[in-house]
């Protein structure tokens, strides 16, 4: 599977004009703050509409100005992992995990849910509320929630940057696991060079609204 992206979006300060392919594995996007990284993945998620261009995953068109296609965020099957986990505070951890499957009417196989819960080591917090979790636990639940919605692409926007270094070490292996075990494209935004070196299969740098290819590190 792969995600191909080619669009232009005018922003107040500069134009974001990018074209790249994100194959299976982790495509790291780095760049200074204000380079438009978050805007870029919001475009992929369908939260921001570009001026023109074409975005598709293996023949499924998500956005195309030529074909007049612009799928809504809920139709794109994209799992989005945010810097702040953004768990729903009024739902338990288990309800947070299940809600994507419920929204998409996917079968609630206990085994599927249990597999991911065990994988992420969050079986002991299922009945808790997000406010009772540590930063690392929150981010693991957020990863699980995105995975259980069975996405065709995963977007991660600086998922480790709000965690301290111990918590980072706790979460990093999970992204390595996603990279190595799931055969879907993962677009991973980070300004941390170590993180990028460790995780990236493909690496792009975003500067002045343009994409520059970097040598692959792994």
């Amino acid at each position: 599977m792969s995600l191909s992206v080619d669009f232009k979006l005018s922003l107040p300060d500069f134009d974001l004009k990018v074209a790249f392919d994100a194959p299976t594995g982790i495509t790291a996007l780095s760049g200074h703050s204000g380079a438009g990284k978050t805007t870029l993945i919001n475009v992929l998620a369908g939260l921001v509409t570009p001026d023109y261009g074409h975005i598709e995953t293996d023949g499924r068109v998500l956005f195309s100005s030529a074909l007049k296609v612009n799928l809504k965020p809920e139709q794109r099957h994209i799992g989005y992992i945010f810097q702040d986990a953004r768990l729903f505070p009024h739902l338990t951890v288990l309800q947070n995990l299940k809600c994507g499957r419920w929204f998409r009417r996917l079968p609630m196989n206990p085994s599927t849910i249990e597999e991911i819960v065990t994988l992420l080591g969050i079986d002991h917090v299922l009945s808790r509320r997000p406010s009772q979790l540590s930063g690392g636990e929150k981010q693991r639940v957020a990863i699980g929630r995105a995975l259980l919605s069975e996405p065709e692409v995963i977007l991660a926007d600086e998922p480790l940057s709000s965690l301290d270094s111990d918590r980072k070490k706790e979460i990093l292996p999970y992204f390595e696991m996603l990279r190595d075990q799931m055969s879907i494209p993962i677009v991973y935004v980070s300004h941390d060079a170590d993180e990028v070196t460790r995780l990236a299969t493909t690496h792009f740098e975003l500067a002045h609204g343009k994409i520059h290819s970097q040598s692959s590190d792994s």
Binding site: G46, E74, F82, F88, C99, F103, A146
Partner: peptide
């Protein structure tokens, strides 16, 4: 609003976002 956007990325249409979030 970001929680509402998160719900949409998980597949919720507007009415579901309103009722559940």
């Amino acid at each position: 609003v970001r929680l509402e956007e998160t719900a949409r990325s998980l597949g919720a249409h507007r009415f579901q976002v309103f009722c559940i979030i």
